[in-house]
């Protein structure tokens, strides 16, 4: 079963890599933000998968939870900045 989760993790890794394309090249700031939040979601799941692999998932849930909560704040801050930009 570990092998299965590991392969899911690897799959997510590949997805993260793909999303990184948008982060690095992705024209404009908005695409990047979208891609980063996508990466955040994948990270969240990958953390849990690592927890499963380590057999200590309860230790990793908190981190995932933090991501669920704070990724949101981060995105809000960026979008607020983008909205308020220009009219300082």
């Amino acid at each position: 079963m570990d092998g299965f989760f590991l392969s899911i993790g690897v799959g997510l890794c590949i997805l993260v890599f793909l999303a990184l394309y948008r982060v690095v090249f992705g024209p404009g700031i908005f695409n990047r933000v979208a891609a980063v939040s996508a990466i955040g979601n994948k990270t969240l799941i990958m953390l849990l998968i690592m927890g499963v692999i380590y057999k200590r998932i309860e230790m990793f849930i908190d981190i995932s939870l933090v991501y669920a909560l704070l990724n949101f704040i981060c995105t809000l801050a960026i979008s607020k900045y983008l909205e308020m930009e220009g009219d300082k």
Binding site: E58, M59, D62, I63, V66, L69, L70, I73, L76, A77
Partner: peptide
């Protein structure tokens, strides 16, 4: 479990920042 003063403090601060 993982966590502690600093992490909790940061999250608390983040909530206020929110």
């Amino acid at each position: 479990s993982p966590g502690g003063g600093f992490q909790g403090g940061v999250i608390l601060g983040a909530s206020l920042i929110l």
